[in-house]
Design a protein around this nucleic acid. Sequence first.
DNA 1: TCCGTCATGTTATGAAGTTACACTTGGCTT
DNA 2: AAGCCAAGTGTAACTTCATAACATGACGGA
Lengths: 163, 163
Amino acid sequence: MTSDGIGAAFAPHDHSHCSARALADAAERLASEGARLTPVRRRTLEILLENHRAMGAYEVLDRLAAEGFGRQPPVAYRALEFLVQHGLAHRLQRLNAFAACLHPGEEHQPAFLICDRCDRIAEVPSGPMRAALAEVAAGSGFAVDRVTVEAVGTCAICAEDRG
Amino acid sequence: MTSDGIGAAFAPHDHSHCSARALADAAERLASEGARLTPVRRRTLEILLENHRAMGAYEVLDRLAAEGFGRQPPVAYRALEFLVQHGLAHRLQRLNAFAACLHPGEEHQPAFLICDRCDRIAEVPSGPMRAALAEVAAGSGFAVDRVTVEAVGTCAICAEDRG
DNA sequence: TCCGTCATGTTATGAAGTTACACTTGGCTT
DNA sequence: AAGCCAAGTGTAACTTCATAACATGACGGA
Ligand SMILES: [Zn+2]
Ligand SMILES: [Zn+2]
Ligand SMILES: [Zn+2]
Ligand SMILES: [Zn+2]
């Protein structure tokens, strides 16, 4: 993870810095891969970066449509898929939703903490869990490819607010 | 897990035994909780138990309808929800599908191995992973409630069949 | 028997995701 | 410059997944 510390999403912070850096990283990263950060894609990423929450594809689509982009589902799904494929966003299986990645560039397949009170999302390292899983899987001859780890619970802010 | 061993789903075995026992356990368990294993619910469980795969709600619904039960989505969703709530079935987030639990009665919140070649599913213990996750989560003040761990990969049988 | 609760069924609707196809754009070849 | 191709963007139409709202039936206790 980055020097921001783990779970920074659940603590007050300068979010404009957070998102500006992610965007800059993204542009650089894509350039080096020969992939194009077109207007829709860029705007989609910006929208996801607005806060530490996950957004449904149709929610993103509404925003895009309101700004003059296409208003059909594939517009959003294609942009989101592109971002996910390039490691700039993640898909949250439990929520059928997407969130911007806050430290792209680092090879990762993170675990997610999802607060069910405020809907904020944090990425945390999943290395130890993946290792533990790979081990038990190997015991039954299963070769793990991708792992989804998503925890639902209560974040620090909400725990304080509401006991 | 049971004496069947971990990941038994991915090895040849006497499946009728597997499913008969799960069904018997289910009936007993529900009786002790005062919950009713009605015909639709029982049949739904039997259908899920037919193999070690996950089924979509509509796939289950088709089967139920063909057997004279209701043919509208809530029929399947209610039965499935009931089974999940009583620990007799699990929901696979990545697949939007359901699978019978093969060792009910044991308090568990398992991890799943999903073979993307044959669609078979296995439950494995998730204790170590949940512990690791709880630790890193606690570091950011997040209290974990429920965890989803789902691994996609290749099972032993498919690995052998196709290299 | 009356009543309340749970269970089952229906219709209708909402939410999520994909397929197929047309048009444009921008780079590359000739 | 003209022609070509691949990638990107847009649309319509549709499938799949899931829930809301409401009516009826089964069952056990007062
Ligand atoms: Zn990330
Ligand atoms: Zn929260
Ligand atoms: Zn189980
Ligand atoms: Zn397999």
